[in-house]
Every structure is written in structure tokens, then in C-alpha cells.
Amino acid sequence: MSSIASGLKGRAELGVALLLGVVGVVVFLDTSRLAITYSQTDPVGPKTLPYLVSGLLIVCAVLLAIDVLRGGQGEAEGGEDVDLTHPADWKTVLPLAGAFIANILLIDWAGWVISGTILFWGSAWALGSRHYVRDGIISVALSVLTFYGFYLGLGIHLPAGVLKGIL
């Protein structure tokens, strides 16, 4: 990895420290607004653990920031299908997240069969599959099968949405 890239990586990890710090501060602020109701039955109170957690997070944030500035690095995780030699491929991840968000927006209105189809088809497309028809058939089949499988097999009624009455 070039020195520029590793420099960038070092700076990116500061974001983790920032996140830890922000969460720590949020936990602290949220806890401090709780009204204390001291009672014999609850000597610990609702504030003790949150304060400890916020302290832990803030300490970790500071130490992590120092560690990163001194050149420390977290190891990115490997795996069977993971190739760490090339940088993160946002052209895959962003459409994938898009398919996921589309599902969130559509699931209650359009129903699982439609939103699930879009989710699978969109994800497969984002991941590089270009067999549009085959992907479509698999997507529809999976969505319909899970809809009925959950309905009949598990008694879980996934939303039918606009297809209500047809399914």
C-alpha cells in the first residue's frame, strides 16, 4: 500500500474514535437528564451503569485516537470471498444499500412479495449478476415461497400490501 493510502486509512480510523466519543457523550447527556429516584429497593439506580459505559467509551475514544495518530491500525477482516488487495468498492455497496432502503420504504405499502423481489434482484444486480431474467425468476420465486412458507408454516403474516386479495 502506498504511503498516501495508508495515511488516508489512518485518518479514516479517526472516524471510529469520533463515533465512540459521540456515543459516549450522548450516553452521558442522556443519563444526566434522568431524575434520580433513590430507593432502598434500588440502591444502584438507573444512572450508574450508563455513566460507567459513557466513561469507557470516552476513554476508548481518546486512546484510540492517540493510537491511530501514533500509527496504530486495526486489521481489516479477511474471509473466503474477501480480497483486501483492492480498496472498498463503493459501486457495489451503495446500490446494495439502495436495494435495502427500497425494501424498507416499500415493505408496508407494496408488501413483502414486491419489496422482497426488488431487494433480491437489486442486490444480485449490485453484486454483478447480469442474468436479468434468471435473477428475476429467482427473486419472485423466493419472495412468493417465503411469503407462503411463513404464512402457512410459521403462522407469521408478512404484509401482502397492494397484492392483498390476490395472494
Partner: peptide, 26 residues
């Protein structure tokens, strides 16, 4: 691989949603 990981996303969504049937969980 596209089917594998699309499938993981699909079933993860289904699993998390079916607990409470709330889009908020997603």
C-alpha cells in the same frame, strides 16, 4: 456469489422483519 450474498441480505431482512413486523426494525 451474487446469489449467495443477495440471499444473505434477503433472509437477514426477512428474519429481522418477521420478529415484530415493523419496518422500523429494518
Amino acid at each position: 456469489r451474487p446469489y449467495l450474498y443477495a440471499g444473505i441480505l434477503f433472509f437477514a431482512t426477512l428474519g429481522a422483519y418477521s420478529v415484530n413486523l415493523q419496518a422500523f426494525d429494518l
